[in-house]
Design a protein around this nucleic acid. Structure first.
Length: 646
RNA sequence: GCCCAUGUAGCUCAGUCGGUAGAGCACUUCCUUGGUAAGGAAGAGGUCACGGGUUCGAAUCCCGUCGUGGGCUCCA
């Protein structure tokens, strides 16, 4: 073995002694800036010794990868602090997540918010102590023995799941943890961190397992970057749709119906404008709208499979004319009862079956905006984002197999129309593929997955694969957007379904006169209108595009003397079809402007004696932009230029 | 459903050590008639989420239920 190895840094190669570590090779980078490195493409610790020729790339503290290292090391620091403060607490896993990290513990009693300052103080103390963080490779069996002795049952379980012969352990002072690494070389690198919240979390995410106690935190390269991040979170909270919805008078929630919004008049306008927009698109894209029942006999849900797969999420009632005893005899007793629909699909099969269908009828596109009710578990409810009562821009396409790709492509085009018109730049697409439990053959799945993929490619849509996350009856395209706090929500979806046509025995007569089975495509562009409105409010901070604004124009009178003129303008605009109101209250202009700003009214019209004298108006737009008095007619022309999509 | 937190006026929130409630905004009335983000005064408004318990006495302490918030799980 040669006593030297060749390292390449920044494209320059040189020889260094065999066994030099990464830190030495990159010593031109000052102290704390360097947190780890990539050696031949693999991310490693700075103490890693170079045993062979290598390309070495530094990972700096403020790069995305460097932040991950900092956060991961901070998670370990937290685990160390927790075990010192609360002996007997077991550690489990502590990964880096977007914007921070968490660590799940199995403590004797769950952590509360009050524990966080104590833990944070301990962490600062340990960070200051400048403890070396060292990587040790140990034999798998030794590691199992060691962690068993330590009483770390969860770690043992993790190691047992690792196929390698050796595992890496990181020592930090007299504390140690199983970890893949890499980590910063010493705790003094960890200077800017904050523990943010506690939460329960199931071991391995399975609710049949023990409930662990999770602590969330975040860490940055500098205190300034941390403060900046905390400030952004504060700002995002101001855009919370629950807060804005109340302030703007759009909707309320009341314990009398948990998880179900009460749309106030202004919120109802948004809801109706959105559905009207979809109706315009439907006319263009060849959809037919229907209205089907809200309540069905449970027979339907048995046929559709919802009884087996979705019953715990359904509102079910006994047959009002039946014996009351049927209520008490358990699930089977409900057999003759009724349930509120959680989805439109089974009902739409009856629309399909209303006539004998020919291949010439396909594709048949059936749309419906009816309200749906789902008995979501109480802990999951979240403003408009997760509700029990909702409407979707729902539709089911019944088509032949050879029509799938075109239909999916057409719907993706609609998705782009809609999200483009509403200014969502960050829309993410995923293709959810065949799950373990599935109907149909693997060939059939691969073929339909390819059709979905092709349809996306045709629309130049980049997508990720979401492996094994398809519905048991078919693959699906999932479309996501994020809320103000960067929580990602699925909005639109396009799903292939071979199952329901089978269950409901749907057929069409092909050109040879033979009955064939159609395919069903479930699709929603906005998804749940509730969720979509929630995301839209947060996305825009409540400043909605003109066509969606519940109140489009507010005429502010300066004094009693111009009351009539203000009312006249509002009436005129209403006749022109705008949502206009006059504010003739006995208040100062500044007060009225403030209220109109808070209500996010896009056009504020100010009229005083000057304007009344020559029948003009002064205009103020949201956020203070003003223009001088203009003739009334010019205002109407201006409003006419506001775009209305589709 | 599970873990943690939380629930006081329509809204946002004070309320100390257990001694039966306060502010601002909103609302009503009056004054003020104004020029681009809060003019002034007065009034009205609460079974302190609900049900138990401890106590001479509970908004306050304990238990339960319901709701809400942050997560887990599920999903649009």
């Amino acid at each position: 073995m040669s006593s030297e190895v060749t390292v390449t840094v920044n494209g320059e190669s040189r020889a260094v002694p065999h066994g030099s570590n990464v830190r030495e090779v990159l010593k031109h980078i000052p102290g704390r800036d360097l947190v780890a490195a990539r050696v031949n493409g693999k991310v490693v610790d700075l103490t890693r010794k170079l045993e062979q020729d290598a390309v070495v790339e530094p990972i700096l503290i403020d790069s995305p990868e460097g932040l991950d290292v900092i956060r991961h090391s901070t998670a370990h620091l937290m685990a160390m602090a927790v075990q010192q403060l609360y002996p007997g607490t077991q550690v489990t896993i502590g990964p880096v997540i977007e914007d921070g990290f968490f660590y799940d513990f199995a403590p004797k009693t769950p952590f509360t918010l009050e524990d966080l300052p104590k833990i944070e103080a301990k962490m600062r103390e340990l960070a200051k102590a400048d403890l070396k963080i060292e990587r040790v490779e140990v034999a798998r069996e030794d590691a199992i023995r060691q962690f068993t002795e330590m009483g770390e049952g969860y770690k043992v379980e993790i190691i047992q799941g690792i196929p390698d012969d050796t595992v890496s352990i990181y020592r930090e002072g007299d504390w140690m943890d199983l970890c893949r690494g890499p980590h910063v070389p010493s705790t003094r690198y960890l200077k800017a961190f904050k523990l943010t919240s506690v939460a329960g979390a199931y071991w391995r995410g399975d609710e049949h397992n023990a409930m662990l106690s999770r602590i969330y935190g975040t860490a940055f390269a500098t205190k300034e970057a941390l403060d900046e991040h905390l400030k952004l979170i504060e700002l995002a909270r101001l855009r919370d749709h629950r807060k804005l919805g109340r302030e703007m008078g759009l909707y309320i929630f009341d314990p009398i119906s948990p998880g179900s919004p009460f749309y106030l008049p202004k919120g109802t306008i948004i809801l109706n404008e959105l559905t009207d927009y979809m109706r315009r698109l439907y006319r263009r894209y060849g959809y037919d709208e229907v209205v089907t029942p809200q309540v069905f006999k449970n027979e339907l849900w048995h046929t559709s499979g919802h009884w087996e797969n979705f019953r715990e999420n359904m509102f079910i009632s006994p047959d009002p004319e039946g014996e009351m005893t049927s209520v008490d005899t358990g699930p089977e007793g409900w057999h003759h009862g009724y349930a509120l629909k959680p989805m439109n699909c089974p009902g739409h099969t009856f629309v399909y079956r209303a006539e004998k269908r020919s291949y010439r009828d396909l594709p048949l596109r059936i749309a419906e905006f009816s309200r749906l009710h789902r008995a979501e578990r109480s802990g999951t409810l979240h403003g408009l984002m997760r509700v029990r009562s909702m409407a979707q821009d729902d539709a089911h396409i019944f088509c032949r197999e050879d029509q799938i790709e075109d239909e999916v492509a057409m719907n993706l085009q609609m998705v782009r129309d809609v999200y483009g018109a509403l200014g969502f730049e960050r829309v993410e697409f995923k293709l959810a593929t065949m799950p373990e439990q599935h109907l149909g053959t693997e060939e059939q799945w691969r073929m339909t997955e390819a059709q979905l993929g092709n349809a996306m490619s045709r629309n130049e849509i980049a997508y990720e694969i979401n492996p094994k996350e398809g519905a048991f009856y078919g693959p699906k395209i999932e479309i996501y957007v994020s809320d103000a706090l960067k929580r990602r929500w699925q909005v639109a979806t396009i799903q292939l379904d071979y199952n329901n046509p089978e269950r409901f025995d749907l057929t069409y007569i092909n050109s040879a006169g033979v009955a064939e089975r159609p395919v069903m495509i479930h699709r929603a562009i906005l998804g749940s209108l509730e969720r979509f409105i929630g995301v839209l409010i947060e996305h825009t901070g409540g400043v909605l595009p003109f066509w969606l604004a519940p109140e489009q124009v507010r005429v502010l009178s300066l004094s009693e003397k111009v009351e009539d003129y203000a009312k006249e303008i509002a009436e005129l605009l209403k006749r022109e079809g705008y949502r206009a109101h006059s504010d003739i209250r006995n208040e100062k202009l500044g007060f009225k402007v403030r209220e109109a700003e808070l209500a996010k009214v896009p056009y504020m019209i100010v009229v005083g004696e000057r304007e009344a004298a020559d029948r003009s108006v002064s205009l103020r737009l949201l956020r203070g932009e003003k223009s001088n008095a203009m003739p009334l007619a010019n205002l109407v022309e201006l409003l006419k230029k506001e775009p209305i999509p589709a």
